[in-house]
Design a protein around this nucleic acid. Structure first.
Length: 655
RNA sequence: GCCGCUAUAGCUCAGUGGUAGAGCAGCGGUUUCGUAAACCGCAGGUCGCCCGUUCAAACCGGGCUAGCGGCUCCA
């Protein structure tokens, strides 16, 4: 037998080490780097591919070791955790079928097929059993098998879903399948996995939910168990605390506490805006109107209710009807299906009525781009299960606009739009990401139109230099779109703004304009929204600011707190001067203790609490206090004129 | 729409088959106060709705409605 040849391993710092071919990653780290790292190591990247520590290195290449210190390490542990949970589930509930169990940003889930649902008690038992598997510190071992071996193994286990996945994997050209075993339990998996179950730390199961096999609602409904894992209990506790903090700024909770909006079972998915909430709404409306006017838009209003002939023309009847509220014709034969009895529908989108508006007149190329802005009320009959607070409702208003332009104007207009969107989001400190979404399955318009629309929109997006993610098949049924996602301060992503390019509607509506050549041309339409909908945007803002709105947006901008009854006269004087300048100010007339009145104002998150007592009356002053605790929020005795100038400035709309 | 969970006073919540409870908010009174909760008292509920089981139901069962966590869908 000949000696194994030496290979050269290059480490991330550029240094190289020679070892015998066939050495495992784990042994290499122990002997050539150090026992400390060997102990901490979870997996490695060998020539760019993720591998187990037991992987035998057979050629020269780069090697990077991952430990719990890297985010990749935690992700691996959560993947290990998913396997451990699945093994615990099958141990406790024989007959349960396993499917898939990927990691997520915050943890992992695993989908199971079982006749009976998992109860909260079951979850507790599973969590306990999973953490016992961790204590046993069972090694993860890897084995490569052929398609036949894999089918036989999982066939014997009766894992129908696994068999389906195995067929798929080999159909896609795989030559073998890797199996991972810990204890008695085996699953196939690309890997890598950590050295043993003990390295996972601690598993916490969070919830159980329904999920469809392969994400298709026509398929079997599985039970998805959500969980997370951390290397230490301390990390888990910290994360749980953070989640608890996040729940405190939930807009549905704050909406009640700050008296911003409400819902009633009589109108599911439709908002009752209180005086405070209405102030948020109308202030945002005002700001958007102002910005639109400054940027070449005109605002129009169109009907809310339209004859179904419009929806047939626009394509909504065919592609969007299930989301539309229909008005049935009382004269129609009651035996007919609903869609045939329908005569009118509430509008779910503004576009068709804008197209009607456009074609009411002869249009000249000199008018283009023609930018029509609308904040009308829309109704969409959303499925009951998707309604959620302000972020998903049935009745809402978009800061909608349709821009009619020549194809040659697309790039410049899209660039302008992305700038506007960035300006608005920046004013709130909202960071956004862009997504480019292409033609969906359910669409109108032929492929050549879509080719042009997608190419034009993507080219315009590219030219802005914004980074973006590609979302194939995610476009609107009438055109490709750029969506703007905003993460709230706790990291959840929401789709707000959108820019959608539409070549189809101008065809369907026969829109035209007279060009400089005195002949008729077809315009292109851009659908766009910046807030998205006022409802969702306000929901995001509530969470983003945790209810502590900037002065210009706050429903109540200042609250005057008289120290004693004799100070109300000056309080009234201050209030009326502020009100005359358009500042929204209230006087606390409860005549309670000063501390209690200040506490009330703080809990209401009013930007300025103005304490007025003997000193303030004498000096024609106020003692403002900003939000927050302790001395630093007390601005001290301030001449009224000075405070007036300050709040007046801060009440200005920033865009 | 699908899977699971939840629904008690304006709000937050306790109450596991035998006459419905607390704190806060509200109302009345006392207190007139200097930077996050004064004190005393009063009132407040067809226990989401309907049907059933039971001598007896907030509590057990079924249905419906709404909400919550997800899935599918979406601004």
């Amino acid at each position: 037998m000949s000696e194994p040849a030496n290979i050269t391993i290059t480490l991330p710092d550029g240094s190289t080490k020679d070892v015998a071919a066939g050495t495992t990653v784990g042994d290499f780290v122990k002997t050539s780097i150090g026992p400390g790292l060997a102990k901490a190591a979870l997996f490695a990247k060998y020539d760019g591919a993720e591998v187990d520590l037991t992987h035998k290195m057979d050629r020269s290449g780069t090697l990077a070791i991952f430990t719990p210190k890297q985010p990749e390490g935690l992700d691996l542990a959560r993947h290990d955790a998913a396997h451990i949970v699945a093994s615990a589930v099958q141990k406790l509930f024989p007959g349960t079928q396993v499917t898939i169990g990927p990691t997520t940003e915050d943890g992992f889930y695993y989908d199971f097929a079982r006749d009976k649902p998992f109860t909260p008690d079951d979850l507790e038992a599973i969590e306990k059993a999973a953490n016992e598997e961790i204590k046993k510190d069972l090694p993860f071992t890897r084995k490569e098998v052929s398609k036949e071996e894999a089918l036989e193994l999982f066939g014997k286990l009766g894992e129908k879903f696994k068999l389906e996945i195995i067929e798929d994997i080999f159909a896609k050209g795989a030559k073998s399948l890797s199996l991972y075993t810990h204890g008695e339990w085996v699953d196939f998996c690309l890997g890598p996995h950590g050295p043993s179950t003990g390295r996972v730390g601690v598993i916490k199961l969070l919830s159980v939910a329904g999920a469809y096999w392969r994400g298709d609602h026509r398929n079997a409904q599985l039970q998805r168990i959500y969980g997370t894992a951390f290397f230490t209990q301390k990390d888990l506790d910290a994360w749980m605390n953070q989640q608890e903090e996040a729940r405190k700024r939930d807009h549905r909770k704050l909406g009640k506490e700050l008296d911003l909006f409400a819902f009633h079972p009589a109108a599911p998915g439709a908002v009752f805006w209180t005086a405070n909430g209405t102030m948020l709404f109308t202030t945002l409306q005002y700001a958007m109107r102002r910005m639109c006017l400054a940027n070449g838009y005109v605002e129009i209003k169109t009907p809310l209710l339209f004859n179904k002939m419009l929806w047939e023309k626009s394509g909504h009847w065919g592609k969007y009807r299930e989301n539309m509220f229909l008005i049935l014709d009382p004269e129609a034969d009651p035996n007919l299906p609903e869609e045939e009895r329908a005569s009118f529908s509430l509008k779910p989108m503004n576009c068709p009525s804008h197209h009607l508006f456009y074609e009411m007149k002869r249009r000249s190329y000199r008018e283009l781009p023609l930018r029509l802005h609308t904040q009308d009320v829309l109704h969409r009959n959303e499925a009951t299960g998707v309604l959620s607070g302000l972020t998903r409702v049935r009745q809402f208003q978009q800061d909608d606009a349709h821009i009619y332009l020549m194809e040659s104007q697309i790039a410049e207009e899209v660039a302008k739009l992305t700038k506007l969107i960035a300006k608005v989001y920046d004013a709130f400190g909202l960071a956004f990401t862009a997504k480019f979404a292409t033609r969906p399955e359910k669409k109108i318009g032929d492929d050549s139109l879509w080719d042009r629309a997608e190419a034009a929109l993507e080219a315009a997006l590219k030219s802005t230099g914004l980074p973006y993610e590609l979302k194939p098949g995610d476009g609107a049924f009438y055109g490709p779109k750029i969506d703007f996602d905003v993460a709230d301060s706790i990291g959840r992503k929401w789709q707000l703004g959108t820019i959608q390019l539409d070549y189809v509607a101008p065809e369907r509506f026969g829109l035209g304009y007279i060009g400089s050549d005195n002949s008729e041309h077809r315009p292109v339409v851009i659908h766009r929204a910046i807030y998205g909908s006022f409802e969702r945007f306000i929901g995001i803002l509530i969470e983003h600011f945790a209810g502590a709105f900037p002065v210009w947006l706050a429903p109540e901008q200042a609250r005057i707190v008289p120290v004693a009854e004799r100070h109300t006269e000056w309080a009234e004087e201050v209030a009326s001067q502020l009100r005359e300048a358009g500042i929204r100010v209230e006087i606390d007339r409860s005549q309670g203790m000063l501390g209690a009145m200040i506490r009330d104002a703080q809990l209401a998150k009013v930007p300025y609490t103005l304490v007025v007592g003997d000193k303030e009356v004498a000096a024609k002053a106020v003692s403002p206090r900003t939000r927050g605790t302790g001395k630093e929020s007390d601005l001290g005795l301030t001449p009224f004129d000075q405070f007036f100038a300050r709040i007046k400035n801060e009440a200005e709309v920033p865009y």
